[in-house]
Design a protein around this nucleic acid. Structure first.
Length: 657
RNA sequence: GCGCCCGUAGCUCAGUGGACCAGAGCGUCUGCCUUCUAAGCAGAGGGCCGCAGGUUCGAAUCCUGCCGGGCGCACCA
């Protein structure tokens, strides 16, 4: 609701400035520091002062006098040296906020352009760890934000099933474990196959590092995967698919889903790269120097100035001198496909279905199924990848630009975030031995390669165990299934909130103490506020069966409503109402800056204010009928907004906890 | 060496295009459960917003330099 008034206020000022002064200024809006100064303000007159060569306060006064009525705004006043402060119509806001909270998000129209969000994209050779969780949870929350904002979103998960990481595990099975294809196939049926590979992968890393000669083995295995047909490729397929299923199961525990699994092997076999390569050569995006350090490679020049004579220009190798293509090269082809610029497409098959029937599709090389939605051809593409890959993401969009796809380049968005690291204390707690230099650092990087990190399922298990203990202590009378369900919601709420409360460019130094906390600025704190509100309504229904619990405001006449908002506790009610009505505004800000943390922060603040309200006003024992109904309406509004905010973060709101 | 990011309370972090006295959680200390669940609330204590300049009516916020930390910059992915 707040953002509606914001928009009207901004528009009114914009029109006034344009008509009166012929000026077209950007109008910054802000929240005044105290309620006595209103709920909405703009410092725009300070900027105008210079242009109009008049005192800011004088301009502000002129605008305040002449602006006329603005919908939702009770009055406009001048404050300080020249602020324009708006005081909202409290009663009107109350009614509209209740109405808006019930209507929910709009469905995207048929013409709404599609955006693709790629996230998760874990190498299918080991269990998911905490770093992967941050990626998936951020990506998923962003998807929810965009959908809430009315956008059509397709979620893709890239499966690098022919890369060096899978090759290493294949190598491990063949050369360290001496397994046959059938033996690996049997092992892959185990539910914790991802854990088994986690350990094997770490052993392979050690094995390869111990003797550099062994790296030749990796190269051979990798080539075998790319060519296909041999035992290596067969084992790779078994491993990658089995681990992918483990990842999907882990992510499903968190409520994270995908529409398409795009497999690198299909990109390879369908010759996506060759098509991209042709275009890049034709348009001169890549060149092949005959001399210098890049002799025989296909390279793409980066940066502007071709350096002085003799200096090598800055460039990125796309095709190696031995003819093989680099990862970035494949990525360029894939990115072109996402925008529908490649001239090729995959065929598609159903990979699996979620409990509610939603299909996850996978790319394939042949024998496609009918009924697949249109994939690719996006208007915007968001790649959720950690900030360490910023350079490569830049190379990809530079390639699109060089190919002449300027718009696609601009709409290739690297949704970047910082890594999750472990505090040295946490690393030691988990039994990892740290070199002295690492122990002195603020945090240590997790490393799947070395088998160092907090596995996602382990963390989830610990969280569920801790939540379960709390639930059991509080509700021993509840059925087993119900307690399990609540504990699950709390555990997921704690984890997702923990990963989302930090802004993207903050390195998360992981520590069990903070991650396992259910108190303070956490998901369960917000969930608890919701449960409190719901308890009030549950009890109310028992006490007064005929009370309109869905619409308590029908028992509050407008005059009583306005009197309560202006009375002794009026400011307090108003603050809570205003914050509850600001969800849309917060979501807009979060979507624009692609920062789910704003929503998390908002949910926490609203829960905090509600808890204060809850303590100060005992609703069910309230004697005044109208006041009671008013308090109920307010509590109901807050509850809906909190549920909506948590839903955007992918967090469920339990009935009890 | 070059590029990107960070430096705010003991710890972990907010501070969304500049606008008042600097915010939260955790931790520490003190209170509050025969009243809608204490996963809560109230209060106390705790800060040269890394340092130095600059721009401005006004800077934690913008610019420059320095100091400290992280991450990139492969014919790895």
């Amino acid at each position: 609701m707040y953002h509606v008034v914001e928009a009207k206020f901004r528009e009114a000022i914009r029109r006034f400035l344009s008509e009166r002064y012929g000026l077209d200024a950007a109008i910054a809006l802000e929240r005044p520091p105290r309620l006595e100064l209103g709920e909405l303000a703009t410092p725009v007159c300070f900027e105008l002062a210079r242009k109009l060569r008049r005192a800011p306060r004088q301009i502000a006064q002129e605008i305040a006098n002449a602006i006329g009525p603005i919908e939702g705004v009770a009055k406009v006043e001048v404050a300080g040296g020249g602020y324009l402060n708006a005081y909202l119509d409290r009663g009107g806001f109350f009614s509209l906020a209740l109405e808006a909270a019930r209507s929910g998000a709009a469905e995207p129209g048929a013409e709404t352009k599609k955006i693709i969000v790629e996230h998760t994209s874990i190498n299918p050779n080991k269990a998911a760890h905490i770093g992967h969780l941050r990626n998936a949870v951020l990506g998923d929350a962003f998807v929810r934000l965009e959908r809430f904002s009315g956008r059509r979103v397709q979620v893709q998960n890239y499966i690098d099933n022919t890369g060096v990481q899978v090759a290493d595990v294949v190598l491990g099975f063949l050369h360290l474990e001496n397994k046959t294809v059938d033996e690996v196939r049997r092992l892959a049926e185990a539910p914790k196959f991802d854990y088994l590979c986690w350990d094997l992968y770490a052993r392979v890393t050690e094995f390869l590092e111990a003797d550099k000669e062994r790296l030749a083995l990796r190269v051979r295995t990798l080539q075998a995967l790319e060519e296909g047909g041999g035992v290596e490729a067969e084992i790779a397929e078994i491993v990658a698919t089995a681990i992918l299923r483990c990842h999907l199961r882990t992510m499903d525990r968190l409520g994270i889903r995908y529409d398409l699994l795009a497999r690198e092997s299909d990109i390879l076999h369908l010759k996506f790269w060759e098509a991209a390569f042709r275009q890049m050569k034709e348009r001169g995006v890549i060149t092949r120097p005959h001399a210098g350090k890049y002799a025989g490679c296909w390279i793409m020049a980066l940066g502007e100035a071709p350096a002085e004579e003799g200096e090598e220009t800055e460039a990125k190798v796309i095709v190696r001198s031995n003819g093989t293509v680099t990862y970035v090269g494949k990525d360029i082809a894939y990115q072109m496909w996402k925008f529908g610029l490649l001239g090729l497409d995959f065929v598609y098959r159903t990979f699996s279905r979620y409990a509610d029937g939603h299909a996850v599709w996978t790319t394939a090389t042949e024998r496609g199924e009918t009924g697949a939605p249109e994939f690719g051809r996006a208007s915007e593409v968001y790649n959720v990848i950690d900030s360490r890959q910023a350079y490569l993401q830049n190379v990809v969009s530079a390639a699109l630009r060089a190919l002449g796809f300027v718009e696609a380049a601009e709409h290739s968005i690297h949704f970047s975030y910082e890594m999750v690291a472990l505090t040295p204390r946490c690393a030691r707690e988990m039994g990892y031995e740290l070199p002295a230099e690492d122990a002195a650092r603020p945090y240590v990087e997790v490393s799947g390669r070395r088998g160092m990190g907090v596995k996602a399922d382990d963390l989830l298990d610990r969280l569920e165990g801790a939540a379960r203990a709390e639930v059991d202590a509080r509700h021993p009378e509840d059925a087993e299934a119900e307690r399990a369900k609540t504990a699950n919601a709390v555990a997921i709420g704690a984890l997702r909130y923990f990963l989302l409360k930090y802004t993207r460019n903050t390195v998360i130094a992981f520590d069990f103490h903070d991650a396992l906390s259910f108190e303070g600025e956490t998901g369960p704190y917000v969930q608890y506020a919701i449960v409190r509100a719901r308890n009030i309504f549950r009890k109310l229904a028992e006490q007064e069966a005929d009370f309109p619990t869905e619409m308590p405001e029908t028992r509050v006449p407008a005059a009583a409503r306005d009197a309560l908002l202006a009375g002794a506790d009026g400011d307090e009610f108003w603050e809570l109402l205003l914050l509850a009505g600001s969800l849309g505004s917060q979501v807009d800000a979060a979507a624009v800056s692609q920062e789910p943390a704003f929503v998390a922060k908002y949910a926490f603040q609203l829960a905090q204010e509600f808890n204060v309200f809850y303590h100060r006003h005992h609703i069910l024992s309230e004697a005044g009928a109208e006041r009671k109904a008013f308090l109920l309406a307010l509590a109901g509004l807050v509850e809906r907004q909190l549920v909506a905010a948590l839903a955007l973060l992918g967090i469920e709101s339990p009935e009890k906890m």
